[in-house]
């Protein structure tokens, strides 16, 4: 640990990595809370995997991968949202299809890209040690966007995630609000892909908020606690991975998973005693 802290003062890439994970944790704690209380982890999973299709298309056409990821995330969010609102019966199947086909499209496009050694692994498992200053700015701006969106729309989000039918009866534009919410989740997914890669996104989106919801009784508190937990897990994972040179994203997810396991055991023991 001391070794990590010493290295942190010397190496800019480590400082950037730590800052990136902190920034990602903010959006992830906020969006993750909605994912957990609305139980749309599967939708978020579908969005995050389909993002690879956009990344593949971007590199194939020689564009910036982040823009491809953002565009794909937005399109998939709309598609998945539309499936949820219109096709209740086979929602699962349709989202599985989006999930897998999006990813397959990405792999095919990347494999066909000539003269450009795209590191597929860095999208699958994250490349936090390579994060650039420009990407940090992007993350900061995205965080501000997420916080502002929730500040303005917290009541429509509450109404729609709490009771969709009631919100519709009261004249809330449920479809619109739901789409905006999914877009926010999609934006968060793109941030998190930098840190842990798209395969592990869902862990960082769901676990901090799931732990927080075991202790906090309101959306605001769950969000706050989830952000702090995200900071702890990602800093902890980064520090642990440094000495033995482990993959950072996977270590962060392991730390979060362990935290979730401990918290669940603790809270069920507490419930049994009371």
């Amino acid at each position: 640990m001391a070794e990590f802290i010493q290295a942190l003062t010397h190496h800019e890439f480590l400082q950037n990595a730590l800052l990136a994970s902190m920034l990602a944790s903010i959006a992830c704690g906020i969006s993750g809370t909605y994912v957990v209380v609305k139980r749309i982890g599967y939708l978020a999973g579908g969005i995050s995997h389909a993002v690879l299709g956009g990344v593949g298309a971007a590199v194939f056409f020689g564009q910036e991968p982040t823009w491809g990821a953002l565009l794909a995330a937005a399109v998939t969010a709309l598609l998945v949202g539309w499936i949820h609102l219109r096709a209740r019966q086979n929602e699962d199947t349709l989202i599985s299809a989006v999930w897998a086909v999006g990813m397959a499209a990405g792999i095919l496009l990347i494999s066909q890209t000539k003269g450009y050694g795209v590191d597929l692994m860095s999208y699958l498992f994250g490349n936090i040690l390579m994060v650039s200053r420009r990407e940090l700015y992007f993350m900061g701006v995205a965080d501000i966007g997420v916080v502002a969106l929730v500040y303005v729309l917290h009541r429509p989000f509450l109404a729609v995630t709490f009771d969709e039918e009631h919100a519709r009866i009261r004249g809330v534009p449920v479809e619109l609000v739901y789409m905006v919410l999914l877009m926010m989740v999609a934006l968060t997914v793109v941030l998190l892909i930098q840190v842990v890669g798209l395969i592990l996104v869902i862990a960082l989106l769901a676990l901090p908020a799931a732990i927080a919801s075991q202790y906090a009784g309101s959306l605001n508190r769950i969000m706050g606690l989830a952000v702090v937990l995200g900071w702890l897990f990602s800093a902890g994972g980064l520090a642990l991975s440094f000495g033995p040179d482990l993959p950072v994203g996977a270590t962060i997810v392991m730390v979060a998973g362990l935290g979730y396991l401990l918290s669940t055991a603790l809270s069920s023991a507490r419930r049994r005693r009371s």
Partner: peptide, 19 residues
């Protein structure tokens, strides 16, 4: 039409009727 474990108080849930 909601999950019983949704983190919301009685007061907040009733207020949503004013939407």
């Amino acid at each position: 039409g909601f999950q019983r474990d949704y983190p919301i108080t009685v007061e907040e849930a009733v207020m949503l009727g004013c939407l």
